[in-house]
Write a protein that binds this DNA or RNA. Structure first.
Lengths: 204, 204
DNA sequence: GTCAAAATACCCCTAAGTAGGTATTTCCAT
DNA sequence: ATGGAAATACCTACTTAGGGGTATTTTGAC
């Protein structure tokens, strides 16, 4: 029986490429292509899928959030994350969520195919990432809370602290406290570094 | 005679995909794959290439800088830019440099093949971009000077204004003036928006 | 129920950024 | 050589961010 694969990436040309890479393997079957996390969930409602290949940086719903929902709603569906950067800060989260595989986009197509085979057979596939997963302690300290992520997202939109306060219905003091904690956790020192970090780590 | 194509993208999986997409067309020949702009120039020194397909966001040397050098050193070599975002701010520059084609990564593989055919036959291919190129006036106002780009890059590193001043050997006042002008030109209002803009437009 | 983490909110103070000017010099192109 | 853009520098003023506290309430896990 062929492995039913759903591709989720907002760049059509990447999807076209992945499709061709995977179609060279005859027991792979691309059952769908979608552009964001929400569409993944919509798709899974109606179609049988073995493996979802997820881009981390997608509009509407990002890959990590999507993976979380997949794993809580469809335990049997395997998830492979495809990402542009080595996203250290997410490794702990990725493992905790139970994501089955993780590859950088500078892997080769063959490695993706290998990862799919491996994951489909119930094992996991982490490339260039084993090194991180050992020292859980430190990683854990870097993990941000949901509310802290809210703050970052608002700030990335260019909102000032008081605008964020209004939007989230909290006090200006609270916003400042959150950002203070974020900067401390991540060892950053100003908003420029924060936005850079957030973009490079798939937070926004 | 087949069209000799050089692919330049730092994501191997995208390159693998492009290769497969293009190899379905028998008069295309992928003569090389490289990871950054410098390698493109090295390659062109020794090999005959008709068309270079360039990613904008590459390490070591970005796509725009590379395209400039290609066009000044090898007038006969055609350049097609492949980019993640609609990079409004670069359109004027792209046209001025004489880049032959520009596609977003959310185009399909077939569109890339069409673009290559079109460019190879001496025409140009701009997708979703014609709309910008008409009103040159406004675009020109958004163009940033070299020094302004320096300031942005420093700020993206997390440097404060006085640190930037020290690094560039100019006065704190000058740094502030530059940033003020940048924000005004781009109609942005704080550093978070600026960094976001810079990352989305290939400035950093 | 208890404990810890998260979210909330306030205080202080200093540093930095934002926004409006004006003005000079340097450099390139017509 | 002359105009215009770019880079430089300074002024005032106001706002925002950054960094140090402390403290309460809410929430979820065990």
């Amino acid at each position: 029986m062929s492995v039913k694969i759903l591709l989720a990436d907002d760049h059509q040309i990447v999807v076209d490429g992945l499709k061709l890479i995977l179609s060279s393997n005859e027991h792979f079957e691309i059952v769908g292509e979608v552009e964001n996390g929400q569409e993944v969930l919509d798709f899974l409602e109606n179609q049988k899928v073995h493996i979802v290949v997820l881009d981390i940086n997608m509009p509407v719903m990002d890959g990590i959030t999507c993976a979380k929902k997949i794993k809580s709603l469809y335990k049997h569906v395997k998830v492979i994350i495809l990402t542009m950067y080595a996203q250290k800060s997410f490794i702990e989260e990725i493992i905790q969520i139970g994501i089955d595989g993780c590859l950088l986009k500078n892997n080769t197509g063959k490695e993706l195919a290998d990862a799919i085979d491996r994951v489909h057979s119930g094992r996991s596939y982490y490339d260039q990432i084993q090194s991180f997963s050992s020292d859980n302690e430190e990683v854990k300290q870097h993990k941000l809370s949901e509310r802290e992520l809210d703050i970052i997202k608002c700030q990335a939109e260019g909102l000032t602290s008081s605008q964020i306060a209004d939007k989230l219905f909290i006090s200006l003091h609270t916003v400042k406290t959150h950002r203070k904690n974020i900067l401390k956790k991540l060892d950053l020192h100003n908003s420029s570094e924060l936005i850079q970090y957030a973009l490079n780590n798939g937070i926004i």
